[in-house]
Simulated scan of single mutants.
Amino acid sequence: MERDAELRRNGHLYEIASVNDEVLGSRQGFPASEAGYRKTLDSVLDIAGPDLMDEVAASIKDHIRTHEERPANQAVRKDARKLVSKAGYPPDDYLNAA
């Protein structure tokens, strides 16, 4: 992974954590969610590039704000798979497993 892409991904993970803290006020269960989000963002980045990764990260943050709960990683992977496919890229095994 290129350094710029890694920094961009880490920035999204930091923002997701900030939104989590702001909306939910608790990090209980967050480390496991964050690990799943990281894998999903990495997968999208490898398949389709940083712009689609940005969309997936934005959808996670929007879900937390709208529903006041963290989305399950399986749901995030399904949404990511749809975005990747719609953009014309074949999903990898990780996204297809959702």
Rank of each mutant, 00 (worst) to 15 (best):
E2V: 05
E2N: 11
R3G: 02
R3N: 11
D4K: 12
D4G: 09
E6G: 05
L7E: 13
L7D: 12
R8H: 13
R8M: 12
R9L: 10
R9Q: 10
N10A: 10
G11P: 03
L13K: 07
Y14V: 11
A17Q: 14
A17R: 15
S18N: 15
V19E: 04
N20Y: 08
N20P: 07
V23H: 08
L24N: 00
L24K: 00
G25V: 07
G25K: 04
S26L: 03
S26C: 05
R27I: 09
R27Q: 11
R27Y: 14
Q28F: 15
Q28T: 14
G29V: 05
G29M: 01
F30K: 03
F30L: 08
P31Y: 00
A32P: 00
E34S: 09
E34A: 09
E34H: 04
A35T: 08
A35S: 09
A35C: 04
A35I: 02
G36S: 01
G36D: 01
Y37A: 06
Y37N: 04
R38G: 00
R38S: 07
K39Y: 07
K39E: 10
T40I: 08
T40Q: 02
T40W: 00
L41P: 00
V44R: 00
D46W: 08
G49R: 03
G49A: 05
G49H: 05
P50T: 11
L52Q: 03
L52N: 00
M53Y: 00
M53R: 07
V56D: 02
V56G: 02
A57S: 10
A57F: 06
A58C: 12
I60S: 08
I60N: 05
K61R: 12
K61P: 01
K61D: 05
H63D: 11
H63V: 08
H63L: 09
H63I: 08
H63W: 14
I64P: 05
I64C: 06
T66H: 07
H67A: 14
H67I: 12
E68S: 09
E68R: 13
E69D: 07
E69G: 01
R70S: 03
P71R: 05
A72Q: 12
A72R: 14
A72Y: 11
Q74I: 15
Q74R: 15
Q74S: 15
A75R: 11
V76E: 02
V76F: 04
K78A: 10
D79I: 10
A80F: 06
A80M: 01
A80T: 03
R81D: 02
K82R: 14
K82D: 11
K82Q: 10
L83Q: 05
V84D: 01
V84E: 03
V84P: 00
S85R: 14
K86I: 08
K86E: 15
K86D: 15
P90A: 15
P90M: 14
P90W: 14
D92N: 08
D92A: 07
D93H: 12
D93P: 06
Y94I: 05
L95T: 02
L95N: 00
L95W: 01
N96C: 10
N96V: 08
A97G: 11
A97T: 06
